[in-house]
Design a protein around this nucleic acid. Structure first.
Lengths: 227, 227
DNA sequence: GTATGATTCAAACAACTGTTTGAAACATAC
DNA sequence: GTATGTTTCAAACAGTTGTTTGAATCATAC
């Protein structure tokens, strides 16, 4: 009974509206209006608008990342000490996310879109939360990828991971943005097709030949690997 | 003088602040404060905050896309009717952007970051402008890519193009976001290294084997296939 | 000099923001 | 029934928002 109906209604309405209009542009009055609760309910149940946002991320993101770690655990256990295939690793990390994004009914889609944007431009007060929530996950997946791709240096993998996050983010905010760019070219694919497309693109990128980096500019020691 | 000093000062300050805090969270008072002009100057010179934003995009984006088309023209003229190499095409489209993004002094960097975010979540009133500004460019590059990659269907190319835009966007807002995820993993590479990394990733993705798409649901208008 | 038009300025505007308040309504225990 | 604690509600709060105003300043022409 800790979660009153009101709490849930607010979270759901907020998720949708934040996705549509962003954090700043979404007012408490619109949220409580859509949720059909009293204006003061947000501050009563969550304390403030910021904490509402944090709670919103918590309930989804924590679950999402637990899921990712859990599936990776299972896979690695199965494989013994043989390295996983890169495709397997990507399928776990992005598969979980895209499956969540495909869930239009439960609001997962709204959340994933919100997440993609927020990750690209974290408001100061979610930044810390994101870092905390992601650190362990990224570390685990980076390690798995390094093991899976012995030819590719860790730094490169991290960058490519980052590029992949970008591709995924755009894939999810997807259809909308594509209409900006291509007048009518696409009917909206279903999630499965998108998943297949994205995955083959990412795998291609991940396994691409290493770039010829410019002569490592004798950049003064950036406290890089400190003593 | 059509362009008073004030106008320019406002645009520069606005570009920086919008990048840092987003459109909604950046107030006219902060802008005019940073630009050291009177508050009323924005409405006097631009009419409204929205038109200031539009003007801001206009002065950069128009130039950027003209540049892209121009370079593509030159390349295609050189090649006669032989198709270009995919790498050449990507180098034009993303090279121009990344060179602009590398320009920290002229404020190009600030703008490109702003653009990446805005593209992912266009405020209603820039959406139309973006579409108009991008339509021709994307059409040209799509055509060039189709010619360069006869094996890949146009729809697939468009999606991959979209994924690449995402990768680029994240690459540019880049270092910030990566610090969320990886505590200190990178000293800031120079733009050239980022360019090389991104390019090899994209080329890998662009040339990846085609995905095995799920049984194509009836393609005709919006109606979903009754599974 | 004066006249004309563009630009700047401080001040005010109405509208909206997140938050607080204190009383009302509700539930659950005794 | 009364008492107790939780939740809702309308109203108000103080602060900020983009925009407007009308007088002051500046530049340039006559």
């Amino acid at each position: 009974m800790a979660d009153s109906d009101t709490r849930q209604r607010i979270l759901d309405a907020a998720e949708l509206l934040f996705t549509q209009y962003g954090f700043e542009a979404t007012t408490l009055r619109r949220i409580t209006g859509a949720a059909e609760v009293n204006l003061a309910a947000v501050n009563y149940h969550f304390g403030s608008k910021e904490e509402l946002i944090r709670e919103l991320f918590r309930r989804r993101l924590t679950w999402l990342n637990q899921q990712r770690l859990q599936e990776l655990d299972r896979l690695e256990a199965e494989a013994g000490d043989k390295p996983l295939k890169p495709s397997q690793i990507l399928e776990v990390f992005f598969g979980v996310a895209l499956r969540m994004a495909a869930d239009t009914k439960g609001g997962g889609r709204a959340f994933m879109r919100l997440l993609g944007r927020t990750y690209a431009k974290p408001s100061d007060f979610v930044r810390g939360f994101l870092a905390e929530e992601y650190a362990a996950v990224v570390a685990r997946f980076k390690a798995a990828l390094i093991k899976a791709l012995p030819g590719v240096p860790g730094e490169e993998i991290l960058w490519r991971f980052h590029f992949m996050l970008g591709a995924m983010s755009y894939a999810i905010s997807g259809t909308d943005a594509l209409h900006i760019v291509a007048e009518d070219a696409l009917d909206d694919d279903d999630a499965e097709a998108l998943y297949a497309r994205l995955m083959s693109f990412m795998l291609g990128g991940l396994r691409a030949p290493l770039p010829a980096l410019p002569a490592k500019s004798a950049k003064s020691p950036r406290i890089r690997k400190a003593a």
